[in-house]
Design a binder for these strands. Structure first.
Length: 856
RNA sequence: GGGCGCUUAGCUCAGUUGGUUAGAGCAGCUGAUUUACACUCAGCAGGUCGGGGGUUCGAGUCCCUCAGCGCCCACCA
């Protein structure tokens, strides 16, 4: 036998069941280290896998089960194929979602200004009024809750049978992950791949943090066009613009129209005066101005939207930013140089009414004032238009000027596109998503977040004698000091007492975006800096869902390209979404999110895996309990068929292909050979769904036709060589089928395998053609005609509404020579399976089958 | 506006490089029944392959076009 384990006396239970297999085998696999990665290996022997560290912020959902199962099936195939599979598991336990969960779970809020309270205990029941606690207390609660969540996640994973090596478990907030993340950052800083600057930044006013382009989403929102009159400085009348954001008027720095626009061409270079605030601004030309939109001329404000940022940058306009980090209006003086109003008193009076207010309040005030001044032209017009939101946010993003760290992506666009082409995508068309994302980049990647539970930037800054922070001369730790927290560690040459003092130092207050850390998942999982890393990097496989191509996949490619001038992984397996039974996307707000544990307990892990494996790569798939039931039924069939076949076999006797002498048996193995070739090829192309489909289909035919045909022969009736041939075929076929099912249905496959083997099926070798002996040139040429004849017999009995065991007095088959020969070879089996008394096979040109039932 | 995918039986989906009469499961219907398995077995019925055009001896499959659904990207004032 080619199997890794040895056969021995069979132990088949009286009443096999699929219930409880998950607990039993998860424990055994742990105890036997079935999935342990062997470090004494070479890169060529390794198959390494990079899976997403799920966000630890509550419960895993069914989408995780779906995606990870697809990856696990592939992992199990390569393991059986002889690869040394490196399959770690990580948890992404820092970042906003985790903070959000901790705030709600304990009823707390982080206030970095507060001192640490060593005796703090969170309220027994979280109330709506959140308790403010120090950063250190907050981080402690984060660690406490994520530890609990991670145990629950791990339990689910083992129950599902994900074949990770749990000794390789990692978390993104662990000291090692932080050290790697900080090392990656310092390397980028040294290479000048990352920079900090004060710049307009996409800002969520509720979370009070910057967000990156990748975290944007458009949502349709109602808006209103207001037509507003600007006065020409030359006194030649007014120019109307249309805007949905009249509240940005005090931030206006210019008007802009298309360079070719006849209507405004003569105005370029001239100036106009803004309504209400009476600030003189230039009229400029830029190609992004759309003559079709509104009146064809737009106002540029700092900053109403991302186009404003582009115009501001490219036209080198002044900054008149007025919206603060809390979304409220900052103080401004219209008599100064920053806001040079021609009528400062009235401008300041009006501004005084909106200062400190929200955007909505300001809009109402300004629209009223425009109406009063006569500068609002005509009626307003309600529209619905896309507005940019943080994907987890509730209010529209503002653009706020702040200091942030950016990774240079724009200047590497072409190289990043080329890296995308280097990857092997499954399905292939998913590469378009990567490409269109990279082509559409318009901002460098902002990796700093003004939050608390994350990897800190390993940077301090000197504070000059005047108390100003010198951002341009950061103080850096050495690599062997990592990880560090600049808010509690002190840079070399300074004392803690000098923190935030003139002549002292100040720590960078921000933390890294969660993607900035998870973009290093291959480095973290592979322990960058150790010998292990060279064995596993670049990874062989990245598994993930399509929705995070622009975030996780993109950012991982960026980091790998900048650090190693290579791709981070060779193959990308993209999974689809799980849709609810009505084919709608699941979301918390709709309330149609399904948690997997109840389904797992009801149907069993193999059944859920069966459903998940039926979803092809990249394809969105609806939850379908019907599919799970079919998976469960298949598992039970595998138990029963294995029990039956092993019951036909003689205890310990191991047979091999040389015992297979009967033409029907040889043909069955030839067909099995086709299946082995097909499934192997499919797996090599990550088509796990096809493997299951083909194997399942073969298996049912094997049970219903082949086993029925050779039942009596295998019992020992008739010639001894024929009995031996049937038993050898049953044994070989069963062994192959159990192994073909093993990646998809690991629990039931392991159960039946262990009835007759000592080792695990998951360490057995993937079936090969060699173990099937000499294969026919024309597979199916014997088996198929015999099955057809058997089917004719069954049809006759079914039509006559008699038992399938009813006797057939005479079965007459007239057939062309080849078929007749096949039937003669299978005549004994056909007779016994059909309970046929007299079988007559004649040569004829046309196939003709006559079934004469025995009259009672 | 640009791009990608999907459209095959009531439902969920297979259909390899174009090749006999288009397949499976579920649901439906008709039966069988001390059986390895009722979480069973056998059988039946159900489709002008989204519409139109083209290439070809031959198209579910290739090309063009239209429509519907879903998604991705976009500088939406």
């Amino acid at each position: 036998m080619p199997d890794a384990s040895t056969a021995r006396a069979f132990h088949v239970p009286e009443k096999p069941t699929v219930d409880g297999l998950e607990g039993t085998w998860a424990e055994r696999w742990d105890a036997e280290s079935t999935y342990r990665f062997d470090r004494s290996t070479s890169r060529a022997e390794v198959y390494s896998i990079d899976t997403p560290p799920p966000t630890v912020s509550g419960e895993l959902h069914i989408g995780h089960v779906f995606s990870y199962t697809q990856g696990d099936v592939v992992a199990r195939f390569w393991r059986m194929r002889g690869k040394n599979v490196f399959y770690p598991m990580g948890w992404d336990d820092n970042g906003l979602p985790t903070e959000r969960r901790v705030e709600n779970y304990f009823g707390v809020r982080c206030d970095p200004a507060l001192p640490y309270d060593a005796g703090f205990t969170p309220p027994e029941k979280p109330s709506k009024d959140k308790v403010s606690i120090s950063r250190r207390n907050f981080v402690e609660l984060c660690h406490r809750l994520t530890a609990v969540d991670e145990e629950a996640f791990k339990h689910l994973w083992r129950y599902l049978g994900v074949s990770v090596d749990w000794t390789l478990e990692y978390t993104t907030i662990s000291p090692e992950a932080q050290a790697i993340s900080q090392r990656g950052f310092l390397n980028m800083l040294e290479r000048n791949d990352v920079y900090s600057s004060v710049a307009p930044t996409l800002w969520d006013i509720d979370f009070r943090t910057a967000v990156s382009q990748a975290e944007l989403e458009d949502r349709e929102r109602p808006g209103t066009y207001h037509r507003v009159a600007f006065t020409r400085s030359d006194g030649a009348g007014t120019i109307d613009i249309e805007t949905t954001r009249p509240e940005m008027l005090p931030s206006c720095v210019a008007l802009v129209a298309h360079p070719e626009d006849e209507r405004y061409r003569d105005l370029f270079g001239s100036t106009v005066v803004t309504p209400l605030f009476k600030v003189e601004v230039p009229v400029l030309a830029h190609e992004l101005a759309d003559p079709e939109k509104g009146s064809g001329i737009a106002m540029i404000c700092t900053f109403g939207d991302t186009t404003d940022v582009t115009w501001w940058r490219e036209l080198q306009l002044p900054t008149r930013a007025l919206i603060g980090r809390d979304g409220r209006y900052l103080p401004a003086d219209f008599s100064g140089s920053e806001f040079p109003s021609l009528e400062p008193d009235s401008a300041n009076e009006l501004y005084g009414r909106i200062e400190g207010g929200t955007v909505n309040q300001a809009r109402a005030t300004i629209v009223d004032a425009l109406r009063d001044s006569g500068e609002l032209i005509g009626d307003t017009r309600d529209i619905v238009h896309p507005v940019k939101f943080y994907e987890k946010g509730e209010r529209p993003l503002e653009i706020v000027t702040s200091r942030q760290w950016f990774v240079k992506t724009l200047e590497h666009r072409d190289e990043l596109l080329a890296r995308g082409e280097e990857l092997h995508w499954f399905p292939d068309y998913m590469k378009h998503r990567y490409r269109s994302w990279v082509e559409g980049l318009n901002l460098d990647w902002n990796i700093s977040r003004q939050r608390f539970f994350g990897v800190p930037f390993p940077v301090w800054y000197p504070v000059d004698d005047a108390g100003e922070i010198e951002f341009d001369h950061p103080l850096l730790p050495s690599l062997d000091q990592l990880p560090i927290d600049p808010s509690s560690h002190v840079p070399a040459g300074y004392e803690e007492s000098q923190r935030n003092q003139p002549g002292g130092f100040s720590g960078d207050p921000d933390v890294m975006d969660t993607w900035a850390t998870s973009s290093l998942s291959p480095e973290i999982a592979g322990h960058w800096g150790s010998e292990l890393f060279d064995l596993v990097y670049p990874m062989d496989l990245r598994l993930q869902a399509h929705e995070i191509i622009r975030t996780w996949l993109f950012s991982t490619v960026v980091r790998s390209h900048l650090e190693f001038h290579d791709v981070p992984f060779r193959n990308v397996l993209i999974s689809g979404w799980v849709l609810d039974p009505n084919r709608k996307k699941m979301s918390k707000s709709v309330g149609n999110v399904v948690t997997p544990m109840p389904l797992l307990e009801q149907h069993g892990a193999d059944a859920l895996r069966y459903w998940a494996t039926s979803g092809r790569p990249g394809t969105d798939t609806a939850i379908d309990e019907g599919q799970m039931k079919i998976g469960r039924r298949l598992s039970i069939k595998i138990l029963n068929a294995s029990k039956f076949v092993l019951g036909r076999l003689d205890g310990t006797e191991l047979l091999d292909p040389s015992d297979v002498t009967n033409p029907l048996d040889q043909d069955l193995l030839s067909l099995l050979g086709l299946l082995v070739t097909d499934t192997t090829k499919s797996f090599e192309h990550y088509d796990y769904a096809r493997v299951l489909e083909r194997t399942e289909s073969f298996f049912w035919s094997f049970c219903d036709n082949y086993v029925e045909l050779v039942k009596t022969r295998a019992y020992g009736e008739g010639e001894e060589t024929d009995t031996r041939s049937a038993r050898a075929t049953l044994q070989i076929a069963l062994s192959v089928l159990q192994r073909l099912f093993a990646p998809t249905l690991p629990f039931v496959s392991e159960e039946v395998w262990r009835w007759w083997h000592d080792g695990s099926v998951h360490q057995a070798s993937w079936p090969s053609l060699e173990e099937l002996g000499t294969l026919s040139e024309r597979p199916g040429s014997v088996y198929q005609p015999v099955c057809d004849a058997l089917e004719a017999v069954r049809r006759e009995k079914s039509t006559a509404k008699v038992s399938q065991r009813a006797a057939v007095a005479r079965l007459i088959v007239a057939a062309p020579e080849e078929i007749a020969t096949a039937l003669r070879a299978g005549a004994n089996d056909l007779r016994s399976a059909g309970n046929v008394t007299e079988l007559i096979i004649e040569d004829a040109n046309e196939l003709r089958i006559e079934v004469v039932l025995e009259t009672v």
